[in-house]
Design a protein around this nucleic acid. Structure first.
Lengths: 148, 148
DNA sequence: AAAGATTGAAGGTTCAATCTTA
DNA sequence: TAAGATTGAACCTTCAATCTTT
């Protein structure tokens, strides 16, 4: 049996969904990079370390929280470590603890207001209360249904 | 004046917005790659060539339509050309016309039903009519307001 | 063998410099 | 000089193979 093509309406939804995030997230990342030299990935790692772990987390927990695989995180941390943003300690055998470094904490502090302002300007201020409720409900349901 | 931090609610919206697209678009791209060896970028180029140009487009028009810069598209087309998916012809001086190749058309035809099925299964079927209307309205407004 | 992590190579993306034509 | 495109280097992501500890 043949699969029916997507209708014009279905394609419009798909494109709206696909592009809007790409554009907004791209702009936020660019704002942060201009102000602090942190990439979106760098910022994500540092803020999760602080938010979730008060400064340190098991590497595997960090990977899961970011929805990243272990290889990607390992390479990312190697680069961040060489720039003095994080430290890694071997804990009880094969478990690695990732810890935010002094410099990492300082750069994160500089990035946070830029992050907040960029999200407000490029997303939150352009949404009505109804939009926000709808996005929260729909997208939370979506991500949960994909098992993440 | 200090920038106020994002509230818990604001962060929840941001994460829902950021992650849902990442997950859904990732799954759709993986389905297409498994079935056809096309990356999401490959599929995007081929389908725009067909949809917008009936098989060929000026390279610059293609770049604009994908919201890509010229460098990224140039590298992408070089790889696709070496795999026999597209052709490039020099038109009147500095204008390049990108044309879908026979093999590109065949692979695209194989990918389209996979694409449609993946979008239906991972996005459309999980949304109510109200979700869909809301997404279309909100996201179209968002992308337009960013000047794209 | 399974869990946690690293490595290296290949492929994709970005940045700055360059080339050619209008 | 500006428009359209390419190139090469650096950086990021993915894939498969590997290493160490349990």
């Amino acid at each position: 049996m043949r699969t029916k093509s997507l209708s014009t309406d279905e394609l419009r939804i798909w494109h709206a969904f696909k592009m809007s995030r790409e554009i907004v997230v791209g702009i936020v990342a660019r704002d942060i990079a201009e102000a602090t030299r942190l990439s979106g990935a760098d910022f994500g790692v540092l803020s999760l370390l602080e938010e979730l772990g008060g400064g340190e987390l098991r590497q595997q927990v960090l990977a899961t929280s970011m929805h990243w695989d272990k290889t990607r995180l390992s390479h990312q941390l190697t680069r961040m470590q060489s720039r003095g943003l994080v430290l890694r300690r071997l804990m009880s055998g094969r478990v690695v603890i990732v810890q935010i470094a002094k410099k990492g904490r300082e750069v994160l502090a500089a990035a946070l207001p830029v992050h907040a302002a960029a999200i407000r300007r490029n997303l939150l201020e352009k949404l009505t209360k109804r939009d926000i409720d709808s996005i929260l409900e729909t997208f939370t349901r979506l991500t949960v249904s994909m098992g993440r």
